[in-house]
């Protein structure tokens, strides 16, 4: 029977991890509260019961130690999946991530692979303050040596996780808390999805056309895809037909998909929950402009988090976060409907 199950993001991640753990005894999971608790964002629920404490390891609260251990395990032939509970906590363990995981393949001239998945929760919008609410996509995408993926729905969450575990490079798997289907945090309608029971992979660097359109291209990733789709539906009622591109991975970045779409629409809005400056939005726009500035009929626009630490107060955070209304306003500017 073909599956008609509608899985949440967290269940899709767990299903991919469990499948790979059954297939390959080298795969293990480490992190804070990944065992009995099942991951504070449910990314490891049930794994301890099936695989036991040897392969699902609760660690002390020392990211420096357990991510360093993950790098060593990976170089010694294991395939660890290590959870950094909130991406915001990267500060104490960046040496392990960036000077070890990302570089050791290069430093060893390819003799030592680092097949580690570092999965980490991103995103705000639920009043958790500036040290629990960032996405930091660009912080990691900027640094060479790691692949960086960020699914927007459960189908992609499973396929990208399977690809990440099988990849011989370190992969940063950035899952948005608001897409996990957690009972205590609202998720957009499209975050859960029909997910096949069998294993499948989604190649890195292949964007998905989430909605076809002809008037303007909206490029997004992770939670921003859902804001872009909501904006596109509202724009359709006003007679503007938006195409929405879900990048799915930052590294590698599917610049070709963006160029194909902009060649068709001539207008570009890029949406990212990460900070505005020096980020994904600029990178995507540059990909178009340095290839052929003549593709654009109007100045490109970006919708991203302003360059300030994320406020704790709900009205202030919501004022800053990308949302469908801000995307609609940006699209209107590209269409020349309001003064830029």
């Amino acid at each position: 029977m073909p599956s008609n199950r509608v899985l949440t993001g967290s269940r899709a991640m767990v299903e991919a991890i469990a499948h790979e753990m059954r297939a390959d005894p080298k795969v293990l999971v480490m992190g804070e509260d990944v065992g009995a608790y099942g991951g504070i964002f449910s990314s490891t629920t049930g794994l301890l019961d099936e695989f036991g404490e040897e392969r699902v390891r609760d660690t002390p609260i020392s990211e420096t130690a357990f991510i360093g251990a993950g790098v060593g395990a990976a170089m010694a032939g294991m395939r660890p999946i290590v959870e950094l509970m909130f991406v915001d906590f990267f500060g104490v363990c960046m040496d392990a991530i960036y000077n070890m995981a990302a570089k050791n393949t290069y430093f060893s001239a390819g003799h030592c692979k680092v097949p580690m998945v570092l999965m980490t929760a991103t995103g705000g919008g639920y009043d958790d303050g500036g040290q629990h609410s960032q996405t930091l996509h660009a912080t990691f995408a900027h640094l060479p040596g790691m692949k960086v993926v960020a699914p927007s729905n459960a189908y992609d969450a499973k396929g990208l996780m399977t690809s990440a575990i099988r990849d011989d490079s370190p992969v940063l798997y950035m899952f948005h808390k608001g897409l996990q289907g957690l009972a205590w945090m609202a998720a957009p309608e499209g975050a859960s999805a029909e997910v096949p029971e069998e294993s499948y992979t989604i190649p890195f660097g292949e964007a998905r056309v989430a909605r076809e359109g002809s008037d303007v291209t909206i490029v997004a990733i992770s939670m921003a895809v859902h804001h872009a789709l909501a904006a596109a539906e509202a724009l359709a009622k006003e007679g503007a037909d938006a195409e929405v591109i879900d990048l799915r991975s930052l590294v590698p970045l599917d610049r070709e998909a963006v160029l194909r779409s902009v060649a068709k629409t001539g207008r570009l809005v890029v949406v990212d929950e990460d900070y505005r400056s020096f980020g994904l939005t600029a990178e995507v726009i540059t990909s178009v402009v340095e290839t052929d500035p003549g593709l654009l009929k109007s100045a490109p626009r970006r919708v991203a988090f302003p360059d300030v630490p994320i406020p704790y107060a709900r009205p202030m955070e919501q004022f800053c976060l990308p949302d469908p209304g801000k995307i609609q306003a940006a699209v209107a500017q590209t269409l020349g409907k309001v003064p830029a």
Binding site: N4, V6, L7, T8
Partner: peptide, 8 residues
């Protein structure tokens, strides 16, 4: 509360 339905 019902957190999620896993079938439509």
């Amino acid at each position: 509360v019902v957190a999620n339905w896993l079938y439509r």
